[in-house]
Design a protein around this nucleic acid. Structure first.
Lengths: 201, 201, 201, 201
DNA sequence: AATGAATGAGAGTTCATTCAT
DNA sequence: TATGAATGAACTCTCATTCAT
């Protein structure tokens, strides 16, 4: 069997992307040294360049990996036939789980993509926008179905969900004792009902 | 009396902190060069060391400035006698306004403080915790006054507010066309009522 | 007195250009290391970058220095009112003397300028062409005055003079025992009369 | 009989020498990478080491090839029974033709041999000297036959011929539009008669 | 006969930092 | 109070070379 994944080169390259993600996430792009990345991979510094043309290319690959993985899950959720509330839970779960699974690539995409050259940044932005748009669509559908109050601004809502999840994601990455499912529940409750008192709920 | 001299020195030092904040915010701690900071101040690279012992000290001062300024406003709000909703609006307004006013120091505190040596980081953490605790107290008071639904976790709530504001803060910094007052309103509405439909509201 | 030359920075920079010229001439651009250049100057490697933005810039400055100096002398000769033969002697003398005076910059211009980026190369080419054109003009004037035989191709002649001088220049640089004045005489004799026998001369 | 194998190996090796010559000529020894040489040959970088023990050995072989080829032709000319003028034409033609035929090895011998270790350089020098000496002998014979004027210094003459041809060779390599036969004619005319006017010619 | 993968030494370059002036 | 000049360590990146396969 000679499948694509079998390819030893791309396997090692994928491992290199993982190592880079981990170091970039911990130290930032400029604070990360190629030596540290190579050491995490178990090879010597110069050998990294067998897999990447430059440190910048490594950043690009990490970001791409981080967001791709991510957008795919979102698409699956958006295209599913679950009711709104289930979708929202799925989105938050997907987002936070991804942080807990040490998907450092996502953090890197969030925090470091601005150090990429314009060209690459634009490509990634499209993917990222795709994510936000899928999320917006989920809100729009719910709005049309009168599940949300009419005043809801779906663009604002999508950004708020993403921002909230990223903020908790950061905390989750730093503190492994946080109960992720508790956070998921509280986040969705906040998003749907707010903190305010209302006798119906 | 050398208070005048002292005054001039500390004025320039404050300006240096501002310049550092600006460059750190734009490029991150490791991506920022002392040369760039000096240029922004209008002096030469080596002269920076008249105001800071090291680049790291500069980072410390920036973070301190960012959070101090911030905590003070929060304390004022927490200690005021406004009703809960007004306090929440005030908090969000204070937070987002601070981004719009290019208070880059706050962004630096959020994103770069982890590059400080442990000792300093701990000191800052206390301040930051003070901020969060004041915010938590606001929620606790409201909870006691039955303005919030009993299930609200005040710690979660405070973190959520901070996270949401920081996320929108980043967007605001990058896009000067965003109407900040619209965001403030939508954020507080989200926090109190959520997006979900409920006939009472 | 505060003349331009007094400026310590430009004095050191000029010295740096000289050191670079020497190393480039001996090892070629790619074979020369910035460390070697710095050592010749008596400073540490990194300090070179106080005077040059890059190794390439250093090459550019060396080439410029080499050819400028050179073109000036040629212009002086071309614009003088000496007879043709005297001019030719002056040109050859100027060219070969410059090699003997260890004007390594000229050798660098000849051999290494092709490693400059296009933009800079073009600028230098103009200067170099100016040199060749001045030389051509000397031949053209002599042709018009019937001092040269009518069949002479002035472009060919100028290139031949330059080529011959560069070739002997290389030998002169390598062997300090060569009698430069003997070479000058023989070169001019070759250029005017050739090696062939003719009873008139 | 393993002569066929041997043959294939040495054929490929010869091709490798050609590829190396081409890259060395274009970028210089230090500027040339083994990867570029391998690519020109159509093999991978590491495989070059099947044919050469080191980059330096490749340089040695290129230089040897360049000068051998060359000396052979010169010997043939020197030992022929043509009259002086025909020999001179033959020499110049051989030299310039060799550049036009992209015999980059010769250029490499001229420009890069100094990067060889002393031992090898000395061996090559003997060959090169053989070339010059053959040429000198041609001049000496002509001098003895009173075809050249008595003042001619045969050593100088040989060097001048070589230098002139190398200089034009460089121009020829760079500009494929140059009419090589015109140059040959003008060079020999210059060498025999000079540029100066004389009623006999 | 050739390759894929890795290495280690060294390159050019940047930069926080120092210090005499 | 500020600068010019230099430093040395670290960094990214290149490349000749090796070797198991």
């Amino acid at each position: 069997m000679n499948s694509i994944q079998d390819n030893k080169y791309s396997q090692q390259r994928q491992a290199a992307i993982g190592a880079a993600a981990s170091v970039f996430a911990a130290k930032g792009f400029h604070g990360a040294s190629t030596k540290a990345i190579a050491e995490k991979l178990g090879i010597k510094q110069g050998s990294l360049y067998y897999y990447f043309k430059s440190k910048e290319e490594a950043l690009g690959e990490v970001c791409l990996f981080g967001i791709q993985n991510y957008v795919q899950r979102m698409d699956a959720i958006a295209n599913s036939s679950q009711p709104f509330e289930a979708k929202l839970v799925a989105v938050v779960t997907s987002h936070l789980t991804s942080y807990r699974e040490r998907n450092e690539a996502l953090k890197v995409y969030n925090d470091e993509r601005l150090y990429l050259p314009k060209e690459k940044r634009t490509k990634l932005k499209e993917l990222g926008s795709g994510y936000r748009q899928s999320l917006e669509r989920i809100f729009e559908d719910a709005l049309a179905a009168a599940i949300l109050k009419p005043s809801v601004d779906c663009h604002f809502a999508a950004q708020a969900v993403i921002g909230l999840c990223n903020a908790w994601g950061d905390l989750i990455v730093r503190d492994p004792n946080i109960d992720i499912y508790e956070i998921i529940e509280k986040c969705t409750d906040l998003l749907i009902n707010g903190f305010g008192y209302s006798e119906h709920k």
